[in-house]
């Protein structure tokens, strides 16, 4: 189903998608998208595919449960907010607060990502949410992270550009963050998380996700995985365990 989104309010655009998806439409081509929010919000079904041409607005794929979204361009803030399952691929850059409380599925961003990415991501049962950023990430990466996988590849960064911002892993109590390249230890919250070089076993842990990323953007996974990764992991699953007087 093709929808020309020019001059469509998000409410009308999303209603059309919701109704068509409920009626069994599996494939959507959205043209001239220009900042409409909440595309794919709460939509279920692993077979549903949404192709977005243009720039979707905030909360793309919020509460989504299964579909695949491909953005042929940049995306804005709060992509994959509390997403349960599914796949979002962004060909360009994406904004702040991506994957907040994300519980499952994959978010692959070819370019850079903004501040507060992967806050409170959590794994549950068979679900393990994954965010891969091809470029760099801003401050507060993986804050309060409770589960899942955050990978920052730092591809095509200019010399001296930091891979991540400050306050990475503040409040972290689960999951793992992998950073390809050098990281200033002062950028990682040492009271919550450990920073160390990734070993062979760790690389095995991220192989599948990096391969998926490379396949999505036609890159060479072997070359990327060959470089040195740093790993950030939680010190404790009970960060506030000792805070209180008994």
């Amino acid at each position: 189903m093709r929808i020309d989104a020019s001059d469509l309010h998000y409410r009308d655009l999303n209603r059309r998608i919701r109704e068509a998806a409920a009626a069994g439409t599996k494939s959507f081509d959205l043209l001239n998208v220009n900042g409409q929010r909440y595309i794919g919000d709460g939509i279920a079904g692993a077979e549903v595919e949404i192709d977005i041409h243009g720039v979707p607005g905030n909360d793309l794929g919020a509460f989504m449960d299964g579909p695949t979204i491909r953005v042929h361009g940049n995306a804005q803030d709060a992509v994959a907010n509390t997403m349960n399952a599914g796949r979002i691929i962004v060909d360009g850059h994406a904004g702040d607060v991506l994957g907040y409380g994300m519980r499952g599925g994959e978010l692959l961003v070819r370019g850079k990502v903004g501040y507060r990415v992967g806050i409170h991501m959590k794994a549950y049962r068979g679900r393990r949410p994954v965010i891969v950023a091809g470029g760099t990430a801003g401050d507060f990466l993986g804050e309060y992270m409770a589960g899942g996988l955050l990978i920052v590849l730092g591809l095509e960064t200019t010399n001296g550009e930091p891979l991540i911002g400050d306050w990475c892993a503040t409040g972290m109590h689960g999951g793992a963050i992998y950073l390809r390249g050098e990281v200033d230890p002062r950028q990682v919250a040492s009271n919550f998380a450990d920073l160390r070089a990734a070993d062979a076993e760790d690389l095995q842990d991220i192989r599948e996700s990096v391969e998926a990323f490379c396949e999505a953007f036609s890159l060479d996974a072997g070359r990327i995985l060959g470089d040195g990764f740093m790993r950030v992991g939680p010190i404790s699953h009970r960060p506030y365990g000792a805070k209180y007087a008994a």
Binding site: A78, R116, K122, Y124, A146, G171, G174, H237, Y240
Partner: peptide, 16 residues
């Protein structure tokens, strides 16, 4: 929908 035995933190504020 979280693992057994892990702290369930609801930080203030909501960081979004």
């Amino acid at each position: 929908m979280i693992p057994v035995g892990s702290d369930a933190l609801s930080p203030a504020p909501q960081h979004d």
